[in-house]
Amino acid sequence: MIEAVGLTKRYGSTVAVNDLSFTVKPGRVTGFLGPNGAGKSTTMRMMLGLDRPSAGKVLIDGHPYRELKHPLRTVGALVEATWVHPNRSARAHLRWLARSNNIPKQRVDEVLEVVGLEQVANRRAGGFSLGMSQRLGIASALLGDPQILLFDEPVNGLDPEGIHWIRRFMQRLAAEGRTVFVSSHLLSEMSLTAEELVVVGRGELITQCSTEEFVESASTASVKVRSPQAAQLRELITARGLSVHDTDTREPDALVVDGASSDRVGEIAAEGGIVLHELASQRGSLEEAFMQLTNDSVEYRTDSGDPSENTTTLTTAGK
């Protein structure tokens, strides 16, 4: 169980995290979702006692991180896979970590086996691929067999096999009853792994809810309709105060009606005696839903003039 209460971090006049409060419950994967630069990594570092909050606090099972006696046995974290000396072997890296929290030596070999690094355990970590470094990072997170696990963008830069491995791994940890908190800027990724979401933008909480609820509430329903009398239908629909636009592919005989059910559009067409070739409800994609919610809180955005285009210009800066 992790509780963040009014967490705030300022760097000079920049506010990285602003009055952030949320709870992370055990037994499920909780996603920490937000665009790049939303303050996710900063929040994670404050959770681990690495950065000092300007205000507020994070409690791990009721205690601040810095008061935990053997923190690695309570909280395991993968913040950056590269926190390893390149000339030190994977085994030596895990050995000193284990020693610092009085974790028995055998545990080092156990976690090396869990992540599949036992073959390369004595090789220098500097020669590891990104995937191997990530596995070593996960091994150090698991070292103390902690009930709480934090992962910051764990699939970043991994190949499909690595991504798949990490996803299954996090779900397995949650199924064992552990608290798993994973950050990501990709909603599609989170929808596959997380049951619950903490969504942030510009360092502020946007919402905390189940992934399903988030997708439901955020995605707008729209109806695609195809008719040989498209122009006539358009007039009828706009006359009833609904917004109509062309499809993305600009098919001449098709329209998209926002915020209406297919029932309603069918009835309008019937009233006007209009022939329909197709009538289908559409649900916005996860990515659209996410961008819609975080639209106002994206830190970096190119100003293209047209406000509707802003949603597509999330940049990758600020990580």
């Binding site: 006692g49 690495l50 810095r66 935990l68 690695l72 974290a77 913040v79 926190w83 610092s100």
Partner: peptide, 9 residues
């Protein structure tokens, strides 16, 4: 950081 994470003191 790994050190301070393991040993907050």
């Amino acid at each position: 950081k790994a050190t301070f994470q393991a040993v907050p003191n």
